[in-house]
Design a protein around this nucleic acid. Structure first.
Length: 290
DNA sequence: CACGGCAAAACGC
DNA sequence: GCGTTTTGCCGTG
């Protein structure tokens, strides 16, 4: 069975495994300071350690212990220090040829023109659909030019999630169209399908400032992280780190535009629009594959 | 004008 | 040395 099929089987949003994994992640991310043991975690969930270990590892690609380490402050700090591999200085194109990028998701992007942005999505047809993903339900939105939106929701919150996205481009026409979004879902969350030959096409719809911030995020390789001030510097406005934070927070293409790789200066994960737990989960997931 | 997915500086223990 | 609070930051709606 391939990995996606495996995921579909195991990580159904309402399935017991999904719930287990979700609770483990929550537990670990809340208590990571105490470094809880596998036994302690299993105990609190009322499961056997071995069973829990197996379920979790299959989902996350790494054991609960490794995940715990990945979520620790130390690890986040290490991600920041993990130069001299240049961080934002490396252009995305240069990265394409590097073997270290083998496991990264390749993306080409284009920005909407200011005029199109002012239209708030007017004249745009956006097709959307919900798909299961390692991080809960993923709401995928595409235009004929490529991926325009990616959001996350827990089972039952789909409506709020959809609304969160549609109000960003209120004049667009929305059509539920699983057929259009399924291919994206299959590729985005399956690293073996990431290829530089066929980059994922992304359209960035936002203000000029926001688009510059998001482009900067796209340059961060997988398994690495930068601070908000790094990004501010990269776009040539070193004192605008706070505005950068706000712009990062409005990133409409979560995960693909890796806003989860932006950390506070001391390595703290600050907030996250779709939940801090999910941010940690993404970093952990990447740590298992980097 | 207020509000952030911020960050130094300033406190207080 | 620490965790917490205060005080500039700067684009957006």
């Amino acid at each position: 069975m391939n990995a996606i099929a495996q995921l579909k089987k195991d990580v159904t949003p309402d399935g017991p495994d999904y719930d287990t994994v979700r609770r483990v992640i929550e537990l670990i991310t809340e208590d990571y300071r105490d470094q809880p043991s596998l036994e302690a975690i299993a105990d609190r969930l009322g499961q056997s350690p071995t069973q829990l270990q197996k379920t979790f590892t299959r989902w996350a690609g790494l054991s609960p212990k490794a995940f715990l380490q990945a979520v620790t402050l130390d690890h986040a700090k290490r991600l920041l220090r993990e130069e001299d591999l240049p961080l934002l200085e490396t252009s995305f194109e240069v990265g394409l040829s590097g073997p270290s990028r083998l496991h990264d998701l390749f993306v080409t992007h284009e920005a909407m023109s200011p005029g199109e942005w002012k239209a708030k999505g007017g004249g745009l047809v956006i097709r959307y659909g919900f798909h299961i993903s390692p991080f809960g339900l993923a709401l995928i939105m595409v235009t004929d030019r490529g991926l325009a939106g990616l959001a996350f929701s827990d089972s039952g919150d789909e409506k709020a999630c959809l609304e969160d996205m549609t109000c960003r481009w209120p004049n667009a026409q929305y059509v539920e169209d699983l057929q259009a979004t399924t291919p994206y879902a299959a590729r985005i969350f399956e690293p073996s399908k990431w290829s530089s030959q066929q980059p994922l096409r992304v359209v960035l719809i936002g203000t000029d400032f926001q688009v510059r911030v998001w482009e900067s995020l796209l340059k961060i390789p997988m398994g690495r992280a930068v601070t908000y001030s790094d990004i501010a510097k990269d776009i040539g406005q070193p004192t605008a780190m706070r505005a950068v934070g706000a712009a990062v927070g409005r990133n409409p293409v979560s995960f693909v535009v890796p806003c989860h790789r932006a950390l506070g200066k001391n390595g703290d994960l600050t907030g996250y629009h779709w939940g801090l737990t999910r941010k940690r989960a993404m970093l952990g997931w990447e740590a298992g594959r980097a």
